[in-house]
Amino acid sequence: MNTIKHYLSVYRKFIETSFAEAASFRLNFVLLILMDIVFYISALATVSFIYDHVSMIGPWNKAQLMFFVSFMLAVDHLHMVILSESFWMLSTDIRTGNLDYTLLKPVHSIFIVFFRYFRASSTLNIFVTWATLIYFGLQANLTTLSWISLPFLVILAFILLAILEIMISTSMFWLTEGLGINFLRMQLQQVSRWPDYIYQRTIKKVFTIAFPILVIGSAPVRFLYDNKLYENILLLIGAIIIFYFLLLKLWDIALRRYDSASS
C-alpha cells in the first residue's frame, strides 16, 4: 500500500513537471494536438471510404469496424499521453549513459524510464477519441454490459500494448544505436490497428500467441459485440499477466547487460 502511495506521489510530480516543460513550448503544444487529430481523421476516413464500395470486411459491417478503429484510437491516445515520449528518450539515454542516474533512484527503473514523460498537450484529445468511440459505439448497438466494460477494456488493452512495447524497447540495450527499434515498435502498432481476421492464419497465430499484439484490440472488441465470448477477456487478461512477468525478467537481464557509456 505504501509503495503504491509512493509511486503515485512520484507520478504526480512527473505530470507536474511535464506540464511545466510543455508550457514553455506553446507552438509544440498545438502541433502535437493537431498531429493526433490528423491521424484520427485519416484512420477513420480510410475505413469509411472502403465501406463506400463494400458492405462487409470479414464478419464486420461498417459501424463495427469503425468502432474497432475508434477503440484502437482510444488506446493509442492513452499510449500517446502516458508512454510515447519515453521510448524516444530511452535510446539516447542508453547511448549517452544518462540512464545511470535513473538506475540510482530508489524507484523501479521501468517506472522512471517509461512513465517519466507525460505528454501534457495530448490529454485534450481525450474528448475527441471518446466522442468518436461513443458515436460509433451507438451505431454498433453495444449492450449495457458492453458500455460498462468499455472504459476498463480500453485500459486493459492499453496495459497489454504498454507491456509489449516496453518489451520490444528492451532490445535497445543490445544495440549500439537503438533508435530504429522505435520504428519496429510503430510497425507492430500498425499491424495491431486492424482486426486480426484480415491476417493469414500463421501470422494471426504468431501475433495472438507468441507476441500477442493482435489481442490488444481484437479480443476486447469481439467481446463487446457478443458478451457471450468472454474467453476473449480471459485471453486479454492472461496475456497481460504472462507478458508482465516476462517483461520483468527480460528487463532484469537487460540491466545486467547495460554497460553504461564510458564517462
Binding site: 509512493h6 506521489s9 512520484v10 504526480r12 510530480k13 512527473f14 507536474e16 513537471t17 511545466a20 516543460e21 514553455s24 549517452t96 549513459g97 544518462n98 545511470d100 542516474y101 540510482l104 533512484k105 530508489p106 524507484v107 564517462s263
Partner: peptide, 30 residues
C-alpha cells in the same frame, strides 16, 4: 539506493527545461 549518491561532472541529472527546484521536489518524492 537511498544511502548513496553519485555526481558526475560530465552528466546532468537536473531536467534541462525546468527550474532546479522542480527537479528537487521530484527527487523529494523519489
Amino acid at each position: 539506493r537511498k544511502k548513496i549518491a553519485l555526481v558526475m561532472g560530465q552528466k546532468s541529472q537536473l531536467w534541462w527545461d525546468i527550474p532546479a527546484m522542480d527537479s528537487f521536489s521530484l527527487l523529494q518524492k523519489y
